[in-house]
Amino acid sequence: MSTTSAAFSTDKIRKPWLAGLLTGLLFLCVCLSWGTTWLGIKIAVETVPPLTAAGLRFLIAFPLFITFALVRRDPIFFPRGTQGFFVFVTLMYFSVPYYLLNYGETHVSSGLTALLFSCMPVFILAFSALLLKERIYLSQIIGIVIGFGSLYMILRVQGVRVDRAEFWGVLAILAAAVMHALCYVITKKKGAQISVITYNALPIGIAGLLLFGLGLAMEEPQFSVISERSWWALIYLGICASVGGFIAYFVLLKRLSPVVLSFVFIIFPVFAVIIGSWYEGQFISPELALYSALLLLGFAITKVPVEQWLAARR
């Protein structure tokens, strides 16, 4: 075999390996960026009020999203006739949920926030059945029972009580997960033709202005007392967690099946719990680890129904 032929053969062997490595690294990047988001929020709201923090995060991310849209020549504005949907996305996906997440993290640990938000696929399943008339399998119902039963035990282990502020933080985070789930389902029904970049760019800017303006009026933030650590957290949330994680996720959409990629929502809470516990000096008890694993297992079952998997095997 000639040297040229050998080199060509070697390249053909390496290319799939390199492509797989790149895909794995991108997947890890998304899990890390979204897994550290919760700790970033926790640090940001240490010295920045929730409304103001959410607004600043989006205002930092907005120019980068616009630049990304211009480079790819994607439209910035939603298609004509979808103005109502645009308002819905701006309010129900970006504005209200991210304020609720920031508010929740003033009372709840970053790891628990990530676990609570990992319930979102279950809410997507429920809304899909109600609004899109999609079938729910028995195994998915079992997964929901396992997941929420484990979540109840996690809240007991963490000591969250009805008469404590943490309870309202938990409700705020779950409400944010419900809103995001509803947006995903409505988007599947009404916004499938809108590019992912268009979907994010202008709504994130308007949401940022709205949240920041409300924060100035209602919270009267004292910028002189904002710590350097909180500023760095906001910059990280705006650039890395929002834009960087989004770009990596966007690339993975073309490399992986939606089912495989959706497991990001099962994996990133693991990173969040570990990183958050390390930063906040919290001990991960065996009970918390067990119930967290059961929670994520239950929600994983809802994403890949056993009945469908067996049918595909046959």
Rank of each mutant, 00 (worst) to 15 (best):
Y137R: 02
L310F: 14
L70V: 11
A312N: 14
F8T: 13
I60N: 09
V273T: 06
V162D: 03
L256I: 12
M1C: 13
F246T: 00
A53C: 06
F299Y: 12
I239E: 07
L28I: 12
I197G: 00
L234R: 09
L234M: 12
A172Y: 04
P221E: 10
M218W: 14
I146C: 05
L288P: 04
P121M: 04
F58P: 04
L296E: 10
E220A: 15
R57I: 10
Y98F: 15
I76W: 08
A172G: 02
Y184R: 00
T47R: 10
G149C: 09
I66Y: 10
T198C: 06
G276N: 06
T37Q: 13
A233W: 01
F78M: 04
G24P: 07
I124P: 02
S150T: 08
K189C: 00
G40R: 06
I141R: 05
L22F: 10
A175G: 11
L100N: 09
A289I: 01
I141Q: 01
I136M: 03
G20C: 04
G55L: 06
E280G: 13
L296F: 13
E105C: 06
S257G: 14
V251D: 10
S118M: 05
A289N: 08
R164D: 12
L182H: 01
L32E: 01
W309C: 02
A69P: 05
F212T: 01
P50N: 07
A19F: 07
V157F: 12
A165P: 11
G111C: 10
L101M: 15
R14C: 03
C183T: 09
S9A: 15
F78S: 02
T10V: 05
G40I: 01
L22R: 03
R255K: 14
V270T: 13
W232A: 15
Q282T: 14
F62I: 03
V71A: 11
R314V: 12
S33G: 01
K188F: 00
S230D: 08
W232Y: 15
L132D: 03
V259M: 15
L155E: 04
G104S: 11
R57T: 07
R14Y: 14
P97K: 09
T302Q: 09
V251M: 13
V304N: 14
G149A: 10
M120D: 05
L214K: 06
Y249G: 00
F117P: 00
L290V: 08
L138T: 09
Y279H: 13
S5Y: 10
G143C: 06
F265E: 12
L130E: 06
E46W: 00
S195M: 03
